[in-house]
């Protein structure tokens, strides 16, 4: 068929010139919230992202940045003093076990990042598909899943993590994986709920019925039609949960569960060891791991809340530029330029 075979009725509008606007790649999608935000939101987003990035860099390059390894207790054949004050060799002092505080704090970021990534990946991999299936299929399956997830939700999160970590400790060797799974158990219900809720509303959309009418299988509908329209709320909860997960990780470490001291440096464990020091005026053993936790949690929360402010349509404020009236205009003022945030 050639372009000359015209059909009754021309196209509804004359074709506009120029290529259609494209949705850019992943990079521009990531950049979008930063471009759209302003004022306090932008400050929150940018600060949070910057601090998070610094922590991530510290974590990745820990072996290069930290003066020693997390379990080094001697240098050049000389043992570090225990509870030693900050000095040239140990800039942030040493712990009660004679480890270098600075190294342990930097390596702690590494542990936190590892656990965090694993926990978020596990939670996404479990929570999102379950939510999609439960919301789309509905019926008894949905009721049972909601019951289970609500039951998990009803437990205090730390208690749940403790139980999970305790049960898993002897089955899996890696403390990091154990902790990540324990945290996953806590956060899966949140992903499940959010994804299920948006699936429930998306399921009723006409394009889902249209997909059914064209003969798509349920699995295809979930993959191609629901997923893309449902996951948009996930990045926000993922960042907010990540902040929470750091606290849970520290809580588990503080209680001596999950990661063994010999495996990795962990801020919560270090804090626990530093409790007795605080009374004796030894401030450096508790300060730096504590700061690590506070900074990481604050940074991730800022990112999450900032994203939420920008992406959540119920919180988003419309930006309306005031009409610009050109001072030199003799005739009618130039048309007011109003701009809306892209939806």
């Amino acid at each position: 068929m050639t372009a000359t075979t015209s059909v009754t009725g021309a196209p509804d509008t004359p074709p506009t010139t120029g290529p259609p606007k494209r949705r850019g790649g992943i990079l521009s999608k990531i950049a979008a919230p930063y471009k759209q935000s302003h004022g306090v939101q932008r400050f929150m987003l940018v600060t949070g992202t910057a601090v998070s990035l610094i922590i991530v860099l510290l974590a990745i390059f820990a072996p290069l940045i930290a003066p020693f390894s997390f379990d080094t207790y001697q240098a050049d054949g000389a043992r570090f003093p225990t509870q030693g004050e900050p000095s040239d060799v140990n800039p942030w002092g040493t712990t009660v076990q004679g480890f270098d505080v600075m190294s342990r704090t930097i390596y702690g970021a590494r542990t936190a990042l590892e656990v965090l990534i694993l926990a978020v990946v596990f939670s996404l991999a479990i929570g999102v598909p379950l939510g999609l299936i439960s919301g789309y299929v509905g019926g008894w399956l949905d009721r049972i899943m909601v019951l289970i997830m609500d039951a998990l939700f009803a437990f205090p999160y730390l208690l749940l993590a403790i139980v999970a970590a305790f049960l898993l400790t002897n089955t899996i060797d890696s403390g990091i994986v154990v902790t990540a799974i324990a945290i996953t158990v806590v956060y899966v219900p949140q992903y499940f709920r959010v994804v299920r809720a948006s699936t429930l509303s998306a399921r009723e959309a006409t394009y889902i019925e249209a997909a059914r009418a064209m003969g798509a299988k349920p699995s295809t509908i979930i993959r191609k039609y629901l997923f893309g329209n449902v996951v948009q709320s996930v990045p926000v909860i993922a960042t907010l949960n990540a902040a929470d997960a750091i606290l849970t990780l520290a809580g588990l470490g503080f209680l001596g569960l999950g990661i063994q001291p010999s495996e990795a440096a962990e801020w919560g464990y270090d804090l626990q060891r530093a409790i007795a020091d605080a009374g004796a005026g030894i401030w450096w053993t508790a300060l730096y791991p504590g700061l690590g936790i506070v900074l990481a949690v604050t940074a991730l929360t800022l990112v999450g809340e900032g994203l939420n402010d920008v992406l959540n349509p119920t919180l988003r404020r419309r930006r309306i530029k005031r009409p610009v009236i050109s001072s030199s205009a003799v005739g009618p003022a130039s048309a007011p330029t109003t701009e809306r945030e892209a939806g």
Partner: peptide
Amino acid sequence: LQMVFQDPHASLNPGMTLQTALAHPLQI
């Protein structure tokens, strides 16, 4: 057996280009 729906704004998946949306029935 196909169907055309009442609301054209809701009957197309907002995340698919027309190419993808139209190719899908052919692939199915």
